[in-house]
Design a binder for these strands. Sequence first.
DNA 1: GACGGCTGGGCGAACGTTCCCTGTCCGCGC
DNA 2: GCGCGGACAGGGAACGTTCGCCCAGCCGTC
Lengths: 353, 353
Amino acid sequence: MRRPTRHVSVKDVAARSGVSFQTTSKVLNGGGSVSDATRARILQAASDLGYVPNLQARSLVMQRTRTVGLIAGDFSDPGLSRSLAGAEQEARRQGYGLLLTSIEPEGSGTEYALPAMMERRVDGILLAAPQMEEDTALSHVLDPTLPVVSLNHIAGRSVSTVCADDEQAGYIATHHLLQGGHRVVGVLTGIRGLRLTQSRQLGYRKALEEAGVESANDLVEEAGTDVAGGLAGLPRLLERRPDVSAVFCHHDLVAVGALTALRAIGKRVPEDCSVAGCDGLDSAAYTTPPLTTVHVPFYEIGAEAMRLLLKMVAGGSPTGAKVVVPVQLIARASTASPPGRGGSARGPARRAR
Amino acid sequence: MRRPTRHVSVKDVAARSGVSFQTTSKVLNGGGSVSDATRARILQAASDLGYVPNLQARSLVMQRTRTVGLIAGDFSDPGLSRSLAGAEQEARRQGYGLLLTSIEPEGSGTEYALPAMMERRVDGILLAAPQMEEDTALSHVLDPTLPVVSLNHIAGRSVSTVCADDEQAGYIATHHLLQGGHRVVGVLTGIRGLRLTQSRQLGYRKALEEAGVESANDLVEEAGTDVAGGLAGLPRLLERRPDVSAVFCHHDLVAVGALTALRAIGKRVPEDCSVAGCDGLDSAAYTTPPLTTVHVPFYEIGAEAMRLLLKMVAGGSPTGAKVVVPVQLIARASTASPPGRGGSARGPARRAR
DNA sequence: GACGGCTGGGCGAACGTTCCCTGTCCGCGC
DNA sequence: GCGCGGACAGGGAACGTTCGCCCAGCCGTC
């Protein structure tokens, strides 16, 4: 429990170069007027001693830490993990530290994550936890002067958000299926209640409506976000509506589960049933058959959110901004025309690999 | 650029409750002898004012920040991302903050990541970046008194490491194939030079040797860590050795690529060629056919590493410890006996799903 | 009734910075 | 010869804590 050997401070450097520590500070920050001779001497001493400035002390007087907090949900989620990478990279590029906390699936974040960040006096907070959407206490406990950007919708206080154009995502995926000639299009949705799910669902409905096609409640099945959800959800959907010839999955992992489930019951994809996903995970390119999906630029979303946050921190803060990032259809082999119809389901894909 | 509205400090709380700020400090830390009356008054004032202690200031005098640094490689890597989750969870459980930095694939980490952590005076550092294995400057620039734990082998200075039993992983995967009756077992390795790759390769060789089976150089092909690597590596391997009837892939993603490549050239799995992976990714359960793999407990490794690091930080530090975590075979449908042989390749799997 | 110990509380210093202001010295112009 | 301004350096305070020590009372004891 002994304190570690003390670090070298400006005073040590000052002592070694025979000046006051204030002058040393000046030199090390590039400011003030100091003669070249002493400047050189100080720099030399600092390097000899291996001086490393103490950001804690600096933060104390500057009232800013050059550190931002990131409260994340489950980062096994590939999308979130990409966004995290983007955010981290941008923070690093601008010389900011990143304090990371995640919150348990059922946890509120208000109890631990937020206090922990506040105590450490982060300059701003990036929220990347879907489950915080519901937390009404959140906007309450949040210091209103602290810059916050979220990747999810936040109830109450109007915080800036950056997210994908999820309605468009739902729309183009469904549109793609309809264009292939499908008339009975089922949907396996994400987690009920999330903005993400609502938006994608909105896009799905819009596409159906536009095509003058039935949009029945029994075509909708909640399946969550993972493979297991698709594995369980698809049979439920098919039992209710054996006539579906195409399924739009809100999440690629669910689509993977759906593919597996279809194979298990002897349905061929895409001959008997088309499947389209959403998220644009890398792994979607390697399913059997390769999955048609909508690419969501998670990395860029994370980076953009961090960029916005740091802009707010720096002061020029259009707080309450809502940034929407465009998405792209990636048509692959999991979608085709329904049984007994000619033509291809391939829509106007702008990118595929 | 205005400074944000000032935070409330112990002095504010003290003023409101009519005592000195030192007494306030005592109360807030639970220490010292203070009468119940004043204690209550102070607590009330603190809560009224919404006092949040300033860990920066506390760190300054305590000489410890209750924050650890984590230098990660690419966290799109599912394994690393799991370890990160484990480490974060454990740090949080013990009330430590986690400062996250990643380093670019070619970056050295010595230039940015380390200085950034040192300036912020982290209490310890967790290294989770395979590319740092080569960095000889690292052990040089690292403060020798700073606790460090790595998930990878680190050249030079003997730092504590926590990692999976990768030799065993390579061994049981290969053993499983041999036991199924295969005699020509190819291997798609991970990144050349990494300890991870060397260990798995060692296990592979050991199994072959033990079974008295050929271990030729032309059975070995470097394929990296991702799907694309497997996609490209498998044809190269097969071109050289068309007689391989089973392939061990150092990484599940490579195995996914191998499966896809095999299908593309019309080979059936496992009838014409068995494929075994390694890492135990969730997605391995959903390939076609489901992938036999070796489960590596990434989450637990991350958590264990953090536990060890915090133990070192707290003082009881068996520095230089090497923790090895066991792995488990998960037999699935991608492995079977070679063409023209009866029997099953299923080995003694202790877990499958 | 003097003294010792305990209890409640305050004072001063320190941690490592930055910022603002005050000196000192010099050369120069009037 | 005197003041003046610029270049250079240092002093003091502040940021928000914790810690060690001291001081004032009060009680009990011999």
